[in-house]
């Protein structure tokens, strides 16, 4: 080419639009690219169809109903377990349970009985009435506790029995007619008899227990208690 203007050059450039790829090659390339895409699509579609099959299996009506029923049962069982209150006895506060006779009460009773015994032994007539009053008061407390809670510690009952033996030995006091002391004797004797019946006893102890039961029936509680103490000391 010799001299050429820009317009002519631009016109010549537009002729380059005639450059085109071989049509067979272009068609082949297109089919190659799209066929690979189709294979990938099929693989993906297979994965998707498998997932869809799984989903449809788990979403079929029968399975949904079965699953719902199962869940309903599980929720029901767990719900009942959760909603049902636990045994109330265990949850009750200790303050609401009937108090046992404390060792302190027994010790106080024993102390008052010893004071009374000392005053009686020393012939301190002035000290005997207040001591008797205190003993009566302590006995009232103890018998109240035992009546409120008949299931007392066996060792506590034994200690009370020992205190009552001491009281019975105090001369110059007329406490046998006191109702509370009578009740205490009766209660303690009855408790000791039932404990001894459960225990393994020798032949002699069994004979003594029979005598105790007879005395109890005769309402001779202090005597019955003395024999019980004999059995315990054997």
């Amino acid at each position: 080419m010799t001299k050429i203007t820009e317009k002519q050059l631009i016109a010549s450039l537009s002729q380059l639009k005639e450059i085109k790829p071989n049509q067979e090659w272009a068609s082949l390339l297109k089919s190659q690219i799209l066929s690979e895409a189709t294979v990938e699509t099929k693989i993906t579609a297979q994965k998707v169809s498998f997932m869809e099959a799984m989903v449809s299996t788990f979403t079929s009506r029968k399975l949904v109903y079965a699953l719902s029923a199962f869940l309903f049962l599980v929720v029901g069982v767990f719900g009942i377990t959760k909603l049902t209150p636990a045994p109330q006895i265990a949850k009750q506060p200790a303050a609401l349970t009937t108090p046992m006779v404390s060792s302190q009460e027994v010790a106080m009773l024993n102390s008052k009985i010893k004071d009374l015994a000392s005053a009686s032994k020393a012939g301190n007539i002035a000290s005997i009435p207040p001591a008797v009053t205190e003993v009566k008061a302590k006995v009232s407390q103890v018998i109240k506790s035992i009546k409120d809670n008949p299931k007392q510690d066996p060792q506590t009952i034994k200690d009370i029995a020992a205190s009552l033996k001491t009281l019975a030995d105090v001369p110059g006091t007329d406490l046998s007619s006191n109702a509370d002391i009578k009740d205490l004797y009766q209660t303690v004797t009855q408790s000791q008899i039932s404990d001894l019946k459960k225990a393994t006893l020798t032949e002699d102890q069994k004979k003594t227990l029979t005598e105790v039961e007879d005395l109890y029936k005769q309402k001779k509680y202090s005597e019955a208690l003395e024999k019980i103490l004999l059995i315990n000391n054997k």
Binding site: L16, K17, I19, K20, P21, A26, L29, K30
Partner: peptide
């Protein structure tokens, strides 16, 4: 296809 081929060919 024609345009890209042409672009590359040139």
């Amino acid at each position: 296809i024609d345009k890209i081929y042409r672009f590359v060919f040139l």
